[in-house]
Write a protein that binds this DNA or RNA. Structure first.
Lengths: 190, 190
DNA sequence: TCCTCCTATGCAACGAGTTGCATAGGCAAG
DNA sequence: CTTGCCTATGCAACTCGTTGCATAGGAGGA
């Protein structure tokens, strides 16, 4: 399971509380692995019990105290072992593709709005990634030269950017197809 | 949950047994939604109990009898309703990206083989999709003109093709980055 | 003959992921 | 002063997904 490993990587990059991890999983790490706070708290507790993580109670002012987690030696070893094992190339899980095929048994034109909504969401994500790229890697505020960790974070971000661009282009293809089908004379429809 | 809906779409395209569905989920529908036979049998049973599907025992010769499922009226209504509801744009779940970021705390060069393996898997899938595209949609054996259902299947397949091409290009980027890091003098490493 | 693979269906156990809810102090807007 | 949002942690119930195993007849090769 990769949630444990994603947490190890994130805590090696910077120790933090369950709450902070949950926020990182809404951006950064979350670009390619999502998790809710409930899931994170549960796994943190288990990993602490397994000795993979160390905890430190941090009192705070004006806000609740937090438990700051960091990676212990066994956690680092577990991550290292996983890095040296092969993982399966993952498959897509794409609701929208199911809907598109399902539209053949319903009204294809009714999908246009839904597809446009998805296109907008992906365009927003792309803009967000591009801003992050300038801020952290290519802009004047970015460190230069980048260290190995930053180079690796950058190449992952480039993957996210490529994914969003590809998806937007495909959704345009989908929209063009839906419009073409809508303009067909009824006798030519499936 | 989209497995139910993927099953409805697949059974509308063509009725079949749990076993046949499982095979379709290894290709076709499975390009963008995966499921094992255990999962499929369990969901088929539940959907039958809910009245979404009709079953017919089909005796066979030289092989075990099968239960052929087809979509009943309530199933069709449930699919239609889902098609008219918005779904969330999905997020990626990418083990390999977690590994790449984790490599900063291990040996980046050790990842090269793993990335090459993934590249090969994606190249194989791409070749498979392209062959299917020629066979079913663009080649001399393909029906012409395509009906609406086939047009929609084709645009979904084009999405799969675009995804694999993008992924291969990104993995080449990853490999180039890993090689660049390996050639750095040690003092410049993170 | 034995071994393996293919069709075909299924149970049991577990781990992963989602949804809803609860607590509790501080802060800011109306 | 109440309403709602932010930080911070967590439980409970449920569904989804994976893994291992079981059954059983037929086909084909060593």
């Amino acid at each position: 399971m990769a949630l444990e490993h994603a947490i190890l990587v994130s805590l090696l990059e910077k120790p933090g509380s369950g709450y902070e991890l949950a926020r990182r999983f809404e951006r950064s790490i979350g670009y390619f692995w999502t998790a809710t706070h409930q899931q994170i708290y549960r796994v943190l507790k288990r990993m602490e019990g397994d000795g993979m993580l160390a905890v430190r109670e941090v009192p705070q002012q004006g806000r609740p105290d937090k438990k700051e987690y960091s990676v212990a030696a066994p956690g680092r070893a577990a991550l290292s072992q996983w890095l040296h094992e092969p993982v399966e190339p993952e498959s897509l899980r794409h609701d929208l593709a199911v809907k598109i095929r399902g539209a053949a048994f319903d009204d294809p034109a009714a999908l246009v709005r839904e597809v446009e909504r998805h296109r907008q969401a992906h365009a927003d994500r792309l803009a967000h990634y591009l801003a992050g790229q300038v801020r952290d890697f290519t802009g004047p505020e970015a460190p230069a030269p980048l260290d190995a960790g930053q180079e690796l974070q950058h190449v992952v971000l480039r993957g996210g950017i490529a994914y969003e661009r590809m998806t937007i282009a495909w959704l345009d293809d989908v929209l063009a197809t839906l419009h073409r089908l809508a303009e067909r004379p009824p006798h030519a429809r499936g």
